[in-house]
Simulated scan of single mutants.
Amino acid sequence: MNLPEGLIVVGYAKVSAASAAHNTHRLFSLCLLVDPGTGRVLAADATAETTVVRRWVADLLLGADLTADPAPLLATVERNYLGQGAGAIRQAITDAWRRYARHREE
């Protein structure tokens, strides 16, 4: 079996009960395909309810460096995502960054 190059890094967050997504998803999941040599995000997907949000999250994270501080990305979500899911998106990003940092320490 010929697996593609890359590392899968997943981040999770609880979905707010006030969010429309809460009816179908209890957790917001963020899945990143990361270049293990550079820490750069090659592809991203999320369990957002709408295609627009899934694409927005993917575009936000494409090319991001998981070895860098995620604060600018978190600030972008805070500034530009005006919905109940903003907290879950920020938390999932933080969780993915933390998982990647633990992997690098091992």
Rank of each mutant, 00 (worst) to 15 (best):
G11T: 14
H22D: 10
S29V: 14
T50V: 10
D35I: 01
F28W: 09
C31W: 08
N23H: 10
A18I: 01
G39T: 06
C31I: 10
V15N: 00
G39Y: 03
T24R: 03
P36F: 05
L33K: 11
A48M: 09
L42Y: 04
D45Q: 14
L30W: 05
V34R: 02
V41Q: 00
S16M: 03
F28K: 02
L42I: 13
L42K: 13
A43C: 04
F28N: 04
P36T: 03
G37E: 12
L32P: 04
L42N: 05
H25P: 03
L32E: 01
A20K: 00
G39L: 03
A21D: 13
L42E: 14
G37S: 08
A48L: 08
L33Y: 00
L30K: 02
A43Y: 09
A43F: 07
V41G: 03
E5W: 06
A13T: 07
T38R: 02
R26S: 09
A43L: 08
V41C: 04
L7I: 12
T50W: 02
C31Q: 10
A46G: 14
L30M: 12
A20E: 05
A17T: 09
S29Q: 15
R40S: 10
V41P: 06
A21T: 07
A20N: 06
N23P: 00
D35S: 08
L30Y: 06
D45S: 15
L27W: 10
E5P: 08
H22C: 07
K14T: 14
A21G: 11
G39C: 04
R26A: 06
K14R: 15
L32R: 01
V10D: 04
L33T: 10
G11E: 13
S16P: 05
T24L: 01
L27E: 14
G37F: 00
